[in-house]
Design a protein around this nucleic acid. Structure first.
Lengths: 198, 198
DNA sequence: GCACTAACGCAACTGGAGTTGCCTTTGAGC
DNA sequence: GCTCAAAGGCAACTCCAGTTGCGTTAGTGC
């Protein structure tokens, strides 16, 4: 069914195929932003991109593949890792970044997609792995400054700082304020200083 | 479209209507357990329950209504609030409970459903509000024992203890071990003892 | 126990997502 | 610049979720 191998191992990466892929990727993101994951259909993506729907079905295999491909695109994009000069400030900025960027329909569409199909789940996991790895430099800088001991698990601290925001946004569905995000970051820092993270 | 008012304000709660509702509720849970949210269709629920699909569409309005109704049912069910004798033990038990119960397809189906439609999201939020309120007694008991100060935000501490588990399970899609859950609980406790939660 | 109507069952219909067979275009290799 | 196969376009089809109009059943109230 799904033949996503084709997406990475193009036999003809040069001309039309590349253009088609780009058009479909952009159309997918636009559709996600407008209608969310539930409203994402191959037909709409095909119409918006100017690519025939048969082609989309053949190369992406359906909605699943579109999401996975768009996620791959998103992962490659750079993002600003906070650098405020202090660990507390960085963690707070990170948590607030997550809190404020997720009303964005695209981001939550990705999470919704991952709940429904395995390909999207794998892609999302890879996405966050990359993010966590990058965000860990916040902690490494703090270690260099002597703010925390070198034994602390950097990525774990990052996860801990943003986890409450994620849980509220996606699981318990509570509204999340900027203050909630800051408190989550502070709690994570307190736990790290208490030695819970190694 | 959706006419869920009918579900609570039955004109004929006595006989057939009640039986139909119960049959559909059970069928919905069974279908969710087997096929998850993505595989939940009105037709299958109708077939399994022995109720005609037209009836299901009219009373529940579609998949959305089925989910919301099933969630209401789940909320009413009692669950065992941990009571190990210490706050640390209770929080750990709580986090492990969440970690171990969520490979359960029904639970994650609810979360998936909430991502896609507003009715399910409202129902899920009410569900977790009830759970958090009940779990808060863990903290109140600890206050009585003098383990933490009376100023600590009880529900917030509960949320903090389970949030990393939720985030891993549903957002970043990482595998979650029992040790991860325990560490999350310990981190929340450390934050509370450090005075971050009020 | 009788009438009345809310609620359920039924079958036929609608619409759109996904599939298939065939033809046309395009770019890679020589 | 010519050839050839991979990739895209097209139209017609299937299939199934969701809808509608109408007939049937069974609680409720008297």
């Amino acid at each position: 069914m799904s033949d996503q191998k084709v997406l990475s191992g193009q036999k003809r990466p040069g001309g039309r195929s590349a253009r088609v892929r780009e058009a479909v990727r952009q159309a997918t993101l636009a559709e996600l932003a407008e209608h969310g994951y539930g409203g994402l259909t191959v037909e709409n993506v095909a119409a918006r991109s100017g690519v025939h729907k048969t082609t989309v079905y053949r190369r992406w295999g359906g909605v699943e593949g579109l999401i996975a491909d768009a996620l791959e695109l998103a992962r490659e994009e750079p993002w600003p890792v906070p650098d405020t000069g202090s660990l507390r400030g960085d963690l707070r900025a990170l948590a607030v970044l997550v809190q404020s960027s997720f009303p964005d329909a695209i981001a939550s569409a990705f999470v919704a997609a991952a709940m429904q199909n395995e390909a999207a789940a794998r892609a999302l996991r890879a996405f966050y792995e990359a993010r966590h790895r990058q965000a860990a430099q916040i902690v490494r800088r703090a270690v260099d400054r002597g703010e925390v001991g070198p034994g602390v698990d950097a990525e774990e601290l990052v996860r801990l700082a943003v986890a409450p925001v994620f849980a509220r946004l996606f699981v318990t569905r509570e509204p999340v304020t900027r203050e909630d995000a800051i408190r989550a970051a502070d709690a994570a820092l307190a736990a790290a200083l208490a030695g819970v993270l190694g």
